[in-house]
Design a protein around this nucleic acid. Structure first.
Length: 962
RNA sequence: GGGCGAUUAGCUCAGCGGCGAGAGCGCCUGCCUUACACGCAGGACGUCGGGGGUUCGAAUCCCUCAUCGCCCA
């Protein structure tokens, strides 16, 4: 008994995962080496945010990145896959604040900035460890020695330098702007962080009396009546005859009694909508804000940061916005100024993070200028657009370039300040004194810069806290409490992780990175901004290719999410099916479509109880179905049948390898000359060369599904189903054994390498097992195999292996074997009956069949196979008529003439139908005239074939008297 | 409202101008044939969302309608 025979019949994914991953890490295969003289290939991981554990979308993205990295590593590149996580400012602070509130009933203001930040760091440590652990379980070959975090020292330094440089370059400004305000989190949120939902509400119509008139009034409609307190005008259309006479007059604002002008504005007002009058609240509506700027209207801010109304609301000051609405409506009604109330559906913005209604809010914010410079030279947005239109950055699939360009084309300034405690604090100090004092203290200081503030005073920016600490108290500097938008630090990721602003060897070698793989929803948030900051800091784009992967949905086309209860934890899949299965399935699913459906099922035990767990990573508990109903949906453990396919394939490969290893008993390495090869050897090598070339091309073009499918089909449908069967007899014969073993070892070796990027664990297991039996292998000359398939060279076989003759031969054998098996099955021939089929063929087909007679015999379980140019057909025989051959299977005693006649008649009808189609095509003069010659020729050949088949079938029928 | 995408076998998806539309899963019939029952052999199942058009030829290109998903206003 050899070692090979002790390999388990079923592949054990867990064993392989636990065995090989630590070996790879210990041997340093994943480490990049800037001093190595090899072309770099770099991917920076899209840093998962530390809010929660990874889901299937991350699993997909990271699988694909690992496939690319492993492939390039095998190609000999100096590969760097930079891992790390993102602090996700608002999201992480929100989950920690939520937990603080549910567990202790406290808000962040109760415990203070320092304590909250400390708690968030603890959360971060926990989730970072979980996330990185998930990546390791998946087999990701990141360079862990370089793991980074967007708030770590190096990234913080990069943020600081970037901010400082932007400040000096005049790209940063502070201003009062209408922002999207989250009243619960008390912060501005970006446009992208708002989710709009159609909401059933009411439309109130309010009467604004014309000042000094007893009877005349303007009627305005609004979905937010409380904002009337901040109205500073009423607008009408300049050409609206109804109100011409009132333009320039004033109306009296109800409740507050303020006189506000009636203005004419053609942009804001649609005279056909409602009454044709619009209230203008510049501080609380984006359109009104613009209108206010056009007409120089005052901006009256009504809100406090927490959503209560301020002193500008007069008697309503101190009340919550919802309460103000109630009272305003009631008071208007009491005064007879409420004209009507009707149901109305409008789109309301909700914060992605807190799920509360977003308020447009006028506040001081920091911005990065995106537009072009006053002299017309391209600004940040334009530069980022140019990077893509010029082809310096290529986006795949190409269609996504459009959304990138459309969004950047708006050139909207980027609001980078967040009123949070978790993040990079803005390095700005306010100085209220005179310029002289500032200059006296700071002039000549490196890394300190200042500029006049919008509302008077000065803004001081420092590269380092220490540079300013000494002056801070003396000058009475106040630091801005805000932090930067998370995407500010993420935008630096491709160079900050490589050591920028230091001129490190890493930065020199690995920037620009090679590929960025990410999801389409952050093309604008992240990809565009990386291009902007990459070009600003590094003078070059951050990556050459951007690959956008599909979004995974559940079986109903719903986006997966924890709260919807339809999410799948990749770790659950790994536990049930194995990491290779997860990876193979995801890679197979990675087509060019934008969505990918993954039918989701609950995990149940054999008693129908439902698997649940308190949180990701916690142990599973099975709960009876009726009890499970009441549990939060995010506690269910989900799975998907989709991964079955991924489980069977590694097992199939494992068993093919077992077969090979068992049969490599007595293997001796040695050269094989081409004339020693059997037809089937030449055939499988020809196919191996092709699948290898195709796999390389698939990887070059991000065709992951094609890659997975091509390799699976070759492995299963050609190598296992045919080649292994063809050589079984040769392996039992000492005369022929050696060559068959050498070819077998070569093909298995190639498969290990080709499959390794997708299925690293099973291929390493096989590779190591092979190492003990056939360490030296390959054709025509064997060479010593690498110590791990991770670092084995990616295959590239000589074109001379391409062998159309061998492929023709084997195709002949396969077709005839299939036909014979079909005859056997249809006629219920017992499995152990030794049939003696006759293959009637001429010419090239006959030669091919003669060469393969013994293979065919073995594969159909025949006693003998004869190949003849013509033959009398025994009366009791089953017959199949193929395009270039007739197969006769004598079956004395097993043939029912009636059934034979029926089958042949069906076959004849079929042929006649097909003939009809071909004849009508060829009978069409314009087809013959206009179609390409080879297409016409093809049809003619087919006509001849079909006619011959029909003749054979008819003659057989005649013999049977049918 | 604008844009992107999808609609092909029961399910998930390939195919994107030229033989007779494919795969995996599922289904049916035989098989534990000393690599594999996570398997082997055989089989059934599709007016390629509807309607127009272009073409010698359309699942594939164009128009239109319908349904669904996503993004942006």
């Amino acid at each position: 008994m050899s070692i090979a025979e002790h390999l388990p019949k079923q592949y054990d994914p867990r064993d392989a995962q636990e065995r090989w991953y630590p070996v790879w890490v210990d041997r340093g295969y994943f480490r990049a080496d800037p001093s190595r003289d090899a072309t770099p290939y770099t991917i920076v991981i899209p840093p998962p945010n530390v809010t929660g554990a990874l889901h299937l979308g991350h699993a997909l993205n990271n699988t694909l990145q690992d496939v690319l990295i492993r492939w390039r590593r095998m190609q000999g590149f100096d590969t760097l896959w930079m891992p790390g996580t993102d602090h996700a400012g608002i999201a992480t602070q929100a989950v920690v604040e939520k937990r603080l509130f549910t567990e202790e009933r406290k808000t962040r203001h109760d415990i203070g900035r320092e304590a909250l930040v400390q708690r968030i760091w603890a959360w971060k440590d926990e989730y970072e460890a979980r996330i990185l652990g998930q990546l390791r379980l998946m087999g990701c070959s990141c360079d862990w020695s370089r793991t980074r975090f967007t708030l770590d020292e190096g990234c913080s330094r990069a943020v600081r330098h970037t901010f400082f440089n932007l400040f000096q370059a005049g790209k940063i400004f502070r201003g009062k702007r209408l922002v999207n305000w989250d009243t619960q989190l008390r912060t501005a949120v970006a446009d992208d962080e708002i989710e709009y939902k159609d909401t059933e509400g009411l439309l109130w119509t309010i009467r604004y009396p014309v000042t000094g008139s007893e009877s005349e009034a303007l009627l305005v409609s609004t979905t937010r009546p409380e904002t009337m307190l901040g109205d500073t005008a009423v607008a009408v259309h300049p050409e609206d005859d109804r109100y011409q006479h009132l333009i320039g007059k004033t109306v009296t604002l109800p409740l507050l009694g303020r006189e506000i002008p009636v203005i004419a504005d053609a942009i804001l007002v649609d005279p056909k909508f409602g009454t044709g009058c619009v209230k203008v609240t510049p501080a609380h509506d984006p359109n009104d804000y613009q209108t206010g700027l056009r007409h120089h209207l005052p901006q009256i801010n009504l809100l406090n940061p927490d959503g209560t109304f301020n002193e500008n609301a007069g008697p309503y000051a101190g009340l919550d916005r919802r309460e103000v609405r109630k009272r305003v409506v009631a008071d208007l009604e009491a005064q007879g100024l409420l004209v009507k109330t009707e149901p109305y559906t409008n789109r309301v913005g909700y914060s992605d993070r807190s799920k509360t209604v977003i308020e447009p809010y006028l506040s001081d914010q920091w911005f990065v200028r995106m537009g072009d410079d006053p002299d017309g030279s391209p600004g940040f947005a334009q530069q980022a657009m140019d990077a893509v239109t010029s082809g310096r950055v290529r986006i795949h699939p190409e269609r996504y370039a459009k959304s990138y360009l459309d969004w950047l084309g708006e050139k909207r300034d980027w609001c980078i300040s967040r009123q949070l405690w978790w993040g990079h604090q803005i390095p700005i100090w306010y100085f209220d004194g005179e310029l002289d004092a500032l200059e006296a203290a700071l002039s000549g200081a490196e890394g300190v810069s200042w500029a006049p503030a919008e509302g008077g005073g000065w803004l001081v920016c420092a590269l380092d806290d220490q540079l300013i600490q000494g002056h801070s108290d003396r000058l009475g500097l106040r630091r801005d409490p805000d932090v930067l938008d998370t995407w500010f630090s993420s935008a630096l990721w491709p160079h900050s992780t490589l050591g920028w602003p230091e001129p490190t060897p890493e930065l020199k070698k690995y920037y620009p990175t090679s590929v960025l793989s990410t999801a389409r929803d952050i093309i604008t948030l992240w990809v565009a901004r990386m291009v902007i900051f990459g070009q600003f800091n590094m003078g070059d784009v951050p990556f050459r290719d951007v690959y956008i992967h599909s979004v995974i949905q559940d079986g109903d086309g719903k986006r997966m999410s924890k709260t919807a209860g339809n999410g799948i934890d990749p770790v659950d899949i790994i536990e049930t099916y194995g990491a290779d299965a997860l990876r193979f399935t995801l890679a197979s699913s990675a087509t060019e479509t934008q969505d990918l459906r993954m039918p989701v099922e609950r995990v149940t035990d054999d008693q129908g109880r439902i698997a649940t767990r308190k949180a990701p990573g916690q142990p599973i508990e099975f709960v009876p179905a009726d009890l499970a109903k009441d549990l939060p949906k995010e506690q269910f453990v989900n799975t998907s049948k989709k991964f079955e396919e991924g489980r069977t394939f590694p097992n199939k490969f494992w068993n093919a390898a077992r077969f090979a290893l068992i049969n490599l008993e007595g293997y001796t390495p040695g050269p094989v000359s081409p004339d020693e090869l059997a037809v089937e050897d030449r055939w499988i090598l020809s196919l191996l060369r092709r699948v290898s070339a195709e796999s390389t091309a698939d990887l070059e073009h991000f065709r992951f599904a094609d890659l997975a499918r091509g390799l699976r089909d070759f492995t299963w449908n050609e190598f296992c189903d045919w080649y292994v069967e063809f050589i079984k007899a040769r392996l039992r014969d000492d005369e022929t054994k050696a060559v068959a073993q050498r070819v077998l070892a070569t093909v298995l070796d190639g498969l290990c390498r080709l499959l390794h990027p997708v299925m690293p664990f099973v291929t390493e297991s096989v590779w190591q097992a092979m190492g003990s039996v056939a360490k030296a292998r390959g054709l025509p000359e064997p060479t010593e195999a690498a110590e791990s398939v991770c670092i084995a060279p990616w295959p590239s076989y000589p074109d001379s292996w391409n062998d159309p003759e061998a492929e023709f031969d084997v195709a002949q054998w396969q077709e005839k074997v299939a036909a014979l098996r079909n005859l056997r099955a249809e006629r219920d021939v017992p499995r152990d009956a030794k049939i003696e089929p006759i293959l009637i063929a001429q010419g090239r087909a006959a030669e091919a069949l003669a060469r393969g007679a013994s293979s065919i015999r073995a594969l159909v379980g025949a006693g003998s196979v004869s190949v003849v140019p013509s033959a009398d057909r025994p009366a009791e025989s089953a017959v199949a008529v193929l395009a270039d051959a007739e197969i006769v299977l004598p079956l004395a005693g097993l043939i029912d003439p009636k059934a034979e006649i029926a089958k042949l008649s069906k076959s004849r009808a079929d042929l006649e139908k097909q003939l009809g189609g071909v004849r009508s095509k060829l009978g069409n003069a314009s087809f013959v005239a206009r179609a390409p010659a080879e297409v016409v020729q093809q049809q003619r050949a087919r006509l001849a074939e079909l006619e011959a088949q029909l003749a054979a079938v008819s003659s057989r029928l005649a013999e049977l008297g049918g």
